[in-house]
Simulated assay, not measured.
Amino acid sequence: MPRRSVAKLATVTAVVAASVLAVAPSAHADLVTYCIGTGGAVTVPNDLYVPAGESCALTGTTITGNVSVAAGGNLVVTGGTVSGEVRVAANGYLDASDTAIAGQVVLAAGGYGVFLRDARTGNVTVRPKGTTTIDSFLFVEQSTIAGTVNAGAGEVRLDRGTQVERNVSTTGTYYTDVHDSFVDGTLSVLNSATGSVVCGSAVRGLTTFAGNLGGVQLGPNGTLDSCASGGYWGRDVSITSTTGGVTVDDNIIDGRLTVTSNDPAAQVAANNRIRGGVTGDQAAATTNQAARLAGPDRDDAGDQRAEARRTSAVQEAVAAGDARL
């Protein structure tokens, strides 16, 4: 390349780089808006970025682009709208209530957590933990996920009228629980460290539980968590290679129930209605209510973890002042 062209290219590159650096922190930049502090009912005309270790608390805010929460950052959104996707980095936290997110939500490996209440999102993904030391969580209440849930780490709970319009798939989570919710596709829970509880819920597609170490509880009278009622299963249900106990109580299964290679053998109560019958080894069903009531409440423990991070994030955002969006 001629020397003059090289010099000209270097000059242009320097000007562009300087422009980006100058524009990025601006409240109304064309590229990205930084958020440190609190913001209200305004429209952000581009992408939003929460810097590493900072907190942003928004109420009634509309974001027309994508959102990125950097490592150790916190974003708390109430009554907001996001036209794009939300990505949360390691040790980052997203808390969205009464908020619509048009795109996907992705929690990176080692991300602290995602809490959704009265929200609507696209696909939700929790990356596997890998070599990180942080155990992530995904807690969803009274929300609609217009896509799939795919989690590879941490605590996962779908609760209180949540609807997932496609499939739910988890592998290697700490636990995966579904309470009073609806899954329009398949449900797959593999290799969970403390098992899975499904109560008062409906799953339309095939359901698979395999390799779970802490047990599987479908319906009440199990040892893992408190539960008021069983659920409806639109197709076959398979529970295999599970340790810690399997209990199936007060369920309607419009297919076959398979319970094989579980240690101890599964307890399948007589009050289940299973259209396709049961395949596999069964033990006599017993009532485990006393053991259940004595055990820890998984829901309360998770809520406390989310509440602690949410409270800290909002306090930090308020202390930082107006985000000048």
Rank of each mutant, 00 (worst) to 15 (best):
residue 3 R to F: 03
residue 73 G to T: 14
residue 33 T to K: 11
residue 72 G to R: 09
residue 208 T to H: 15
residue 20 V to Y: 13
residue 322 D to M: 00
residue 131 T to V: 10
residue 154 G to F: 04
residue 250 D to Y: 02
residue 278 V to N: 04
residue 293 L to Y: 15
residue 10 A to H: 01
residue 25 P to H: 04
residue 183 V to W: 02
residue 28 H to P: 01
residue 274 I to M: 03
residue 2 P to Y: 01
residue 56 C to Q: 07
residue 272 N to E: 05
residue 21 L to S: 07
residue 6 V to G: 03
residue 90 A to E: 15
residue 77 V to L: 15
residue 17 A to L: 14
residue 69 V to M: 12
residue 37 G to F: 10
residue 30 D to M: 15
residue 4 R to G: 00
residue 23 V to Q: 12
residue 233 W to S: 04
residue 198 V to D: 01
residue 159 D to W: 01
residue 134 I to D: 15
residue 228 A to Y: 08
residue 85 E to M: 08
residue 301 A to W: 03
residue 78 T to Q: 12
residue 239 I to V: 13
residue 154 G to P: 04
residue 123 N to K: 03
residue 114 V to R: 04
residue 172 G to C: 07
residue 278 V to W: 05
residue 226 S to L: 13
residue 194 T to N: 10
residue 134 I to M: 13
residue 133 T to M: 10
residue 124 V to M: 11
residue 80 G to D: 10
residue 47 D to F: 02
residue 17 A to N: 12
residue 288 N to L: 14
residue 247 T to S: 13
residue 243 T to F: 09
residue 63 I to A: 02
residue 173 T to H: 03
residue 182 F to C: 02
residue 173 T to D: 14
residue 111 G to A: 08
residue 143 S to Y: 06
residue 237 V to F: 06
residue 162 T to E: 07
residue 82 V to Y: 04
residue 19 S to Y: 10
residue 204 R to S: 14
residue 29 A to L: 06
residue 226 S to I: 09
residue 257 L to F: 11
residue 102 A to C: 01
residue 324 R to A: 09
residue 147 G to H: 08
residue 283 A to R: 10
residue 146 A to G: 13
residue 23 V to C: 14
residue 116 L to T: 00
residue 160 R to W: 03
residue 86 V to A: 05
residue 277 G to K: 12
residue 64 T to Q: 11
residue 95 D to Y: 12
residue 81 T to S: 13
residue 168 V to A: 09
residue 234 G to W: 06
residue 121 T to Y: 06
residue 198 V to M: 10
residue 167 N to F: 09
residue 253 I to N: 02
residue 83 S to N: 14
residue 316 E to P: 00
residue 236 D to S: 08
residue 58 L to R: 08
residue 38 T to L: 06
residue 38 T to I: 10
residue 104 Q to W: 07
residue 93 Y to M: 15
residue 57 A to C: 01
residue 282 Q to C: 00
residue 172 G to S: 10
residue 90 A to T: 11
residue 8 K to R: 12
residue 34 Y to W: 12
residue 217 Q to K: 05
residue 230 G to Q: 07
residue 121 T to M: 06
residue 12 V to A: 13
residue 305 R to Y: 00
residue 10 A to P: 00
residue 6 V to M: 13
residue 120 R to L: 10
residue 228 A to K: 07
residue 232 Y to D: 15
residue 317 A to K: 02
residue 87 R to E: 11
residue 278 V to R: 04
residue 106 V to Y: 13
residue 50 V to D: 07
residue 175 Y to C: 00
residue 46 N to E: 15
residue 10 A to K: 06
residue 9 L to F: 14
residue 36 I to L: 06
residue 166 R to K: 12
residue 296 P to D: 12
residue 68 S to D: 11
residue 55 S to R: 03
residue 150 N to K: 14
residue 6 V to N: 01
residue 180 D to A: 13
residue 27 A to W: 02
residue 207 T to Q: 03
residue 95 D to H: 10
residue 310 R to N: 10
residue 292 R to S: 11
residue 201 S to M: 00
residue 120 R to P: 02
residue 59 T to V: 08
residue 257 L to Y: 09
